[in-house]
């Protein structure tokens, strides 16, 4: 599972976006998914995200995220109707329970639970998209301008992570060569064996850390300006995606302050579509958020567009 969820370089259009443009796009999706409550808006955003995931060849990865999200979605759908008594349309009266009274389940609460699980799916899918299109190094590169030391710690730890997972196996092998059988013995002896395994891992990792620190020092860490090896190019496609995100965000904020994008769940369900303004805002938001996936399609199928962006 760990491998499936991790970023893979496939040379896709969406992976070639400037990290700033890609981050702003994902951030916009996230903020809008958390800001809107209208189920139609939440479902629309989900549609755009899934379309983009498909554009990034990530439907198989997305399935894994779906599995993680499913348990949480069920919880959302269960807790809401069980504890919320604000709905007016009661569809089930429970038996009388001492101290708690009669539990009631209302249509509104079920509806709210479903809408919120769509929101949960929105958010989880945004992160799936993040894993699909942004290389961790690029994100860290962006961060390193703001916070050098923190970015250094994170990128060092990211590098060390797979190395350390391998190290555990190596130490196990060495111990096995010396006659330590990890599968034999009582729980107490097994624990002692594992305890020494982890102590060796900690000791050798910290010893390695000293080596890393010395080589950082030798490479003049912290003295003089930072050097930078890789450069990200800002291309027309990035400007287009950024403009799309900005437009979607503006339309969303304008809509929310003018009564579109919100929704009344309690005490009785409101109208999904509250006049033409609701549709106009929804379409503006969805179309401007679709710019990356539209460009992705153009990049694959339209040579003229490919040469221009």
């Amino acid at each position: 599972m760990a491998v499936k969820l991790f970023y893979e370089e496939k040379g896709l259009f969406l992976q070639n976006l400037h990290p700033l443009a890609a981050m702003v796009f994902l951030g916009t999706l996230l903020v809008l998914a958390l800001a809107f409550t209208n189920p139609l808006y939440l479902a629309g955003i989900l549609f755009v995200i899934v379309l983009t995931v498909w554009g990034a060849d990530g439907l198989a990865v997305w399935e894994n995220y779906l599995k993680i999200g499913l348990a949480m979605m069920l919880l959302v759908m269960m807790i809401n109707p069980l504890v919320v008594h604000a709905g007016k349309t009661i569809i089930w009266h429970g038996p009388d329970i001492p101290f708690l009274g009669r539990p009631t389940i209302s249509l509104e609460a079920i509806y709210y639970g479903i809408a919120m699980s769509v929101r949960l799916l929105d958010i989880i899918s945004v992160f799936c998209l993040y894993n699909l299109i942004i290389h961790p190094d690029k994100a860290l590169n962006l961060l390193s301008r703001l916070a050098q030391k923190s970015a250094l710690v994170i990128s060092l730890a990211t590098r060390l992570f797979p190395a350390m997972a391998r190290n555990i196996e190596h130490i196990k092998d060495v111990q096995r060569m010396r006659g330590v059988d990890f599968n034999r013995g009582t729980l107490k002896t097994k624990l002692r064996k594992y305890s020494s395994l982890f102590n060796i891992l900690l000791l050798s990792s910290l010893e390695d850390a000293l080596g890393i620190a010395e080589s950082m020092q030798a490479r003049a860490f912290g003295s003089g300006p930072r050097s930078c090896y890789s450069q990200n190019f800002w291309r027309p496609r990035d400007a287009l995606c950024l403009a799309g995100s900005a437009l979607a965000l503006l339309a969303g904020v304008w809509g929310l302050t003018h009564g579109h994008g919100g929704y009344t769940f309690y005490p009785q369900l409101g109208y999904l579509i509250d006049g033409p303004g609701t549709v106009a805002v929804l379409l503006t938001v969805l179309l401007s958020l679709s710019i990356p996936v539209a460009l992705n399609w153009g990049w694959r199928h339209c040579l003229f567009l490919k040469s221009k962006i």
């Binding site: 710690v153 060092l156 730890a157 990211t158 350390m164 990792s205 910290l206 390695d208 000293l210 890393i212």
Partner: peptide, 10 residues
């Protein structure tokens, strides 16, 4: 920095 990174990775 190196210690923090190693312990974080661990």
């Amino acid at each position: 920095i190196a210690f923090i990174a190693v312990l974080g990775a661990l």
